[in-house]
């Protein structure tokens, strides 16, 4: 190394820096994945909802003054063959009080299939205040051939949900896992 001239050495250090940039930016591309998740969790964008323990939910003060309409909808992704619908499509709730409802699913195929449901809450500003204690979406649901089942979800709408929210929509999309 000592026989290198000054310009050679400065070229070498410049190149090291320059090659580091693309390597770091490649990593940054991957870093965007967790950053995106954190961003969505914090802002409630993307309809991401939170999970809450039953003990914590029971400590909430029920606000019987307020009524919020909850709408349930269901979608089926392209693969598989399913019947999938909410047991009741509208429910009126008080903030702070836990409620349970069910979704009905039937595997129309003559073979065992695993499903995964993904929830989404609109409007975004309500998503951060919509928490679930129990949900069929927390885990994969295995269905035997032609099996049908009612799947429960227990949720609570936080008391801090913004004043202007009077309707919240909870949508589930059912995916077939390979």
């Amino acid at each position: 190394m000592s026989n290198q001239t000054q310009p050679q050495r400065s070229m070498r250090s410049l190149l090291t820096k320059l090659f580091l940039v693309p390597i770091m930016m490649f990593g940054f591309g991957y870093l965007m994945v967790p950053l995106y998740d954190i961003f969505c969790d914090v802002t409630g964008l993307n309809g991401k909802t939170g999970a809450i323990s039953e003990a914590k939910a029971s400590q909430m003060v029920v606000n019987t003054e307020r009524e919020i309409k909850i709408q349930f909808t269901s979608n089926i992704n392209q693969n598989g063959s399913w019947e999938f619908r909410p047991a009741q499509s509208i429910m009126t709730v008080h903030p702070g009080k836990p409620y349970t409802t069910t979704f009905y699913a039937r595997n129309k195929l003559n073979e065992a299939v695993t499903s995964q449901s993904i929830p989404s809450v609109t409007p975004n500003k309500a998503a951060a205040h919509f928490d679930k204690m129990e949900c069929f979406c927390f885990t994969e649901q295995k269905f035997a051939a032609l099996e049908e089942r009612e799947m429960p979800v227990t949720f609570v709408v936080g008391t801090a949900v913004p004043e202007e929210v009077d309707t919240i929509t909870l949508a589930y999309t059912l995916f077939t896992k390979k």
Partner: peptide, 13 residues
């Protein structure tokens, strides 16, 4: 050099 690696990352994903 700042953006091509990001594309490379995206298509690798």
């Amino acid at each position: 050099i700042a953006t091509m690696p990001v594309l490379a990352g995206a298509v690798t994903m």
